[in-house]
Amino acid sequence: MSALVDIAPAPRTAVERPLLEVRQIVKHFPLKGGLFGRTTGTVRAVDGVDFDVMKGETLGIVGESGCGKSTTARLLVDLITPDAGEIAFDGRRLGPDLTLTELRRNVQMVFQDSYASLNPRLTLEDSIAFAPTVHGMKDLDARRLAQELLAKVGLEPKRFAGRYPHEISGGQRQRVNIARALALSPKLVILDEAVSALDKSVEAQVLNLLMDLKAELDLTYVFISHDLNVVRFMSDRVMVMYLGEVAEIGPVEAIYAQPAHPYTRALLGSMPSMDPEKRTEEVVLTGDPPNPINPPSGCRFHTRCAFAEEVCSVKKPSLHVRATRGHLASCHVGTPGSGHSLSELPA
């Protein structure tokens, strides 16, 4: 594991181990077709993704739909079993050193659809108390914990504990989902588009709640979103994904101020600005991402890239360090020796 490229960000303390280490994780979904369910193709949803999540930080993951953000999230809690790759939590590798149950006690997830993620037949209290009960907590204690958590996410237990999901609003439901995810006292919470379906005003409240909870409970977040503004607000570091691969990863300021990957620049360029002086002038991305069943050769972005040269369709770029420490991008431009005419360009 340590032989791989060190992609950890600048360590905050002397020798800090990442809370979560993900190495070369791969998930391909076979496409079944034909009379006997033969495999007719493979969707390369996540294709060799590496990243670390440091304790106490928020790692934002951005990308277009279908780039593998949600699959990555589901792989982290083993809701989907990876085809290859390693996940280590707190220095312990899943499998040899860490059981799945232990991983799941420490890593919890909040889903996008607040309604679908609550069982319509259970009261909010029962939904929150379910996981602790499964892990051996006594019924009464679990209910007490559920009520405490409701209070913690800003829902008065007396009014909400005995309610059903359809009786409350989307924002309140998402608060319940957050409470449910916190019920096992996890160290890492994966927020998979957790605020994307909410109204802007409610979204802001939930984001603030998430920030408060993070500080109060010493949490680490993986924050997945397609909303670049929200990611910028929430994250310490950002990972940009494109077609199942990492395009760029680095500190949030570096990514937003000096994006090194043309895809990141295009994404940021597509961000509407409130300032008329900062009109989007750069080339905005056109077309849909290529089909992940048959991804382009070499750099997967070369079909849509303004800087594409011959080398890009032949040679696959790897993550390479940029100007800021901990800022890496997977692009031949600015990677010395890559064979691209702009390879020596200071990124």
């Binding site: 799941r104 993620s117 379910f130």
Partner: peptide, 17 residues
Amino acid sequence: KIDYVEAARASGAPGFT
């Protein structure tokens, strides 16, 4: 396939529960 079952799986509950 609904998320609340996924969430229950993510909480580490056994299939029977």
